[in-house]
Amino acid sequence: MANNEKTIEIEVLRYRPEEDDKPFLQSFKVPFTDDMSVLQGVQYIKDYLDGSVSFRWSCRMAICGSCGMMINGVPKLSCKTFLREYYPGKITLEALKHFPIEKDLVIDLSDFIGKLESIKPYIVPDAPRALEEGEYLQTPRQLDRIAQFSSCINCMLCYAACPQYGLKPEYLGPAAIALLHRYNEDNRDSAKAERMQLLNAHEGVWGCTLVGYCSEVCPKDVDPAAAINRNKVNSTIDYLLRFVAPRGGN
């Protein structure tokens, strides 16, 4: 590296479950160049300053969804946030909000995984189709209806942005509802009725009070708030329809 090297202060909210009762801030001075991401900054800390700092990462290109953290209070992907944006100020890093901290910047996301599994995130076809019959037809327009909602990388930034999730962890939450919507809107699927029950519940779309921050922080323009609020409409229609034409028991 060049000798006119700049350094930036990075504070990390540490929590070591085997030693600490509660988290504390630890500060590091990190040399950096203009093209370095926040992730590279934390990697530098781990590699050369304190090997015990723990965090998740892999792809470095904003697609694997591992590296989310609170960067100066805002949920972001650390691999696509750059140190230069904060210099000469300091950066404070914290594990994603609203999730339990396992260690340092690592959260426990098993709650979300459970929710993802619960929404039947797969195509349930009307009648199974043999491979020899080839692909289902889907026009670009039909694809467009699901394209944005199928771009979710499960990075959990939206949950860290959602105070309702922080207050009521039962709430299904933005990404899970966006994914549910993606399958409901897919012309190849026929399990909408079953998924609607999840949405109609109190922990479903009605857990949302339209703070709208989830869509603002989403790094992939999924716009989960749109999925949630469109389904408030759907859920209401579904509710009314049940008075008009009650469905048989299941």
Binding site: P17, K22, E102, D108, P163
Partner: peptide, 14 residues
């Protein structure tokens, strides 16, 4: 278990 997940309080979140 060596796990001891820490849940942060929500007080004054808004």
């Amino acid at each position: 278990s060596t796990r001891k997940p820490y849940v942060r309080p929500m007080t004054g979140w808004w």
